[in-house]
């Protein structure tokens, strides 16, 4: 007779729980805000481990990254029929992930000064402001599978691609390779 008594409680708990769970870096969290807090801790750790370069390029660079709306539209793969709260979480997570690249570049001291901007259309913004910065670094999203970092320098006709070292370990080593690609592009000129 024990199990019949337990069954109603079990079903009630299942109904209440709604199976909601958020994950980041293979860790599970019970709420989106907890998961985003976990993400912030991870990203701060990565920023702390970014290598500081011995010399800085004179001038101000800007890092332009997409807004949450843009991340939701072009960065989140929506398979099945996900609830809007999960899409919101994924879009916010992605926006933070990209926006943090400003902190990495600032930490590296690759440039004497770094600014950041979050906009709906980074490509459009980059074209508008590139004459005012020694380097305009932006993330261009076309679809969830087509996302890339580019940079413009004053007078350049075409943007240059910023690459990651595919063999570098995740975290700071990967970020260090991204910063190296920027510095290499600067040394090549237009």
């Amino acid at each position: 007779m024990r199990s019949p008594k337990l069954l109603p409680c079990l079903f009630a708990l299942m109904t209440l729980s709604g199976c909601a769970s958020y994950s980041y870096n293979n860790e599970k969290y019970s709420s989106a805000s907890d998961a985003l807090a976990g993400q912030q801790r991870y990203l701060e750790g990565v920023a702390n481990d970014v290598a500081v370069l011995p010399t800085s390029i004179s001038g101000t660079a800007i890092v332009i990254t997409p807004s949450k709306e843009t991340c939701e539209a072009l960065g989140v793969t929506k398979s099945g029929a996900p609830r809007q709260e999960f899409i919101d979480y994924a879009a916010t997570n992605e926006q933070y992930e990209f926006a943090n690249f400003y902190k990495y570049l600032e930490k590296s001291k690759a440039f004497s000064r770094v600014e950041s901007r979050i906009v709906d259309h980074p490509l459009l913004e980059a074209r508008n402001v590139s004459a005012s910065y020694v380097a305009t670094i932006y993330l261009h999203m076309v679809s969830p599978s087509q996302v890339g970092w580019y940079m413009l320098t004053p007078g350049a006709k075409e943007p240059k691609q910023i690459n990651f070292d595919a063999t570098a370990a995740p975290g700071a080593p990967k970020i260090n390779s991204w910063i190296k690609s920027i510095v290499d592009n600067m040394s090549k000129g237009n």
Binding site: P4, L7, P8, F11, M14, T15
Partner: peptide
């Protein structure tokens, strides 16, 4: 009553899902 409660919760769970 117990059977009714179980059935109600089961249907409730399905309805909830």
């Amino acid at each position: 009553f117990t059977r009714g409660a179980i059935l109600l919760c089961f249907v409730g769970s399905l309805g909830g899902c």
